[in-house]
Design a protein around this nucleic acid. Structure first.
Lengths: 165, 165
DNA sequence: CGCGAATAAGTAGCCTGGCTAGTATTCCGT
DNA sequence: ACGGAATACTAGCCAGGCTACTTATTCGCG
């Protein structure tokens, strides 16, 4: 989402990568990152013809699969925080779209296993793989001190966000 | 959204605020921040009985107001990237909720001005004010070098996200 | 054991917040 | 001064949530 209208007017009179910066610059950068991420998610959604929940779902299923865990609708329901009814509909959509298949749970005959198709795997990999790789490269290229600074800052911001619950 | 299932298994065997860290830690921190922010937005939405778009809208209107700009439905439509029809409905909701009022545009008789109510102002201020203040304090407490490091990192991540459009 | 409560998935029908198409009014450039 | 563009709105559609309920199966305990 846009989020223009620079609130303070404390603009960038320097180049792209200042050696030093103020608090306002940090918050601006954080906001820009947030906006870019939201936009990226939207593009991914659009390119895969999916909504946000579906995308989260397929990613979760794939991650679990890769970790050797088998999951079912109830897990999706819990993780995505949607009702079991909505989960049924979600799985219908993803199945119709060819992203995953239902199969009976091996021991519990009430339950299902949800498994991603190869198609889903390659599609997600193509869409997100390069970007993830580049993000990891960027993060790995930091010195340990820089990584520590950034990690601590983000943890502190997270704490602030979680604090006034 | 959750986003558990630690993908790499590269866990935190150290404390809350490591002096140094690796790239994976940075990405984990970034993801945690993202999740915390999403949760915060949801709480705000819930407490104000609003959906995401409505919240973005009221914030935009208030910011514009504070910057001395008058805005109308078409501006909201453009900024929020929704149709003018949806914008009409959105304004109806916000007006009914007592967050803003319509008034005729002073010169263009086709147009409206959207102005936030005092109520909206105080409510948003109460809900977000303290948190914003603490985020700014956190950011301001960084040394210029630290701020530079973080800003550059976030800019680089933003560039990566925007790059494969 | 054996039966009642709990759990998994699904169905039916509702509500919210988007959308497109079309309308009335007003503005503005030629 | 008039025809096309712009602004707000109405009407009606659709997607993706929800609750309430149903069916099948499993679990737990007396």
């Amino acid at each position: 989402m846009p989020e223009h209208a620079n609130p303070t007017g404390a603009g960038y009179w320097y180049g792209q990568s200042p050696e030093t910066a103020g608090g306002v610059d940090v918050l601006n950068a954080l906001r820009a990152y947030r906006a870019a991420e939201a936009a990226m998610r939207r593009r991914t959604r659009d390119s895969m013809r999916m909504n946000e929940t579906d995308l989260l779902a397929i990613r979760f299923v794939m991650q679990a699969r890769q970790a050797g865990q088998s999951i079912g609708p109830k897990d999706l329901s819990r993780v995505l925080n949607i009702s079991t009814a909505s989960t049924t509909a979600l799985i219908d959509r993803l199945q119709k779209g060819g992203y995953l298949t239902r199969r009976p749970h091996p021991t519990d005959r009430r339950a299902l296993e949800i498994i991603p198709t190869d198609n889903a795997d390659t599609e997600v990999r193509e869409t997100l793989g390069k970007m993830h790789r580049r993000m990891l490269e960027t993060a790995e290229s930091l010195t340990p001190e820089e990584a520590g600074t950034i990690t601590r800052f983000l943890q502190e911001m997270t704490r602030v966000l979680e604090d006034d619950r």
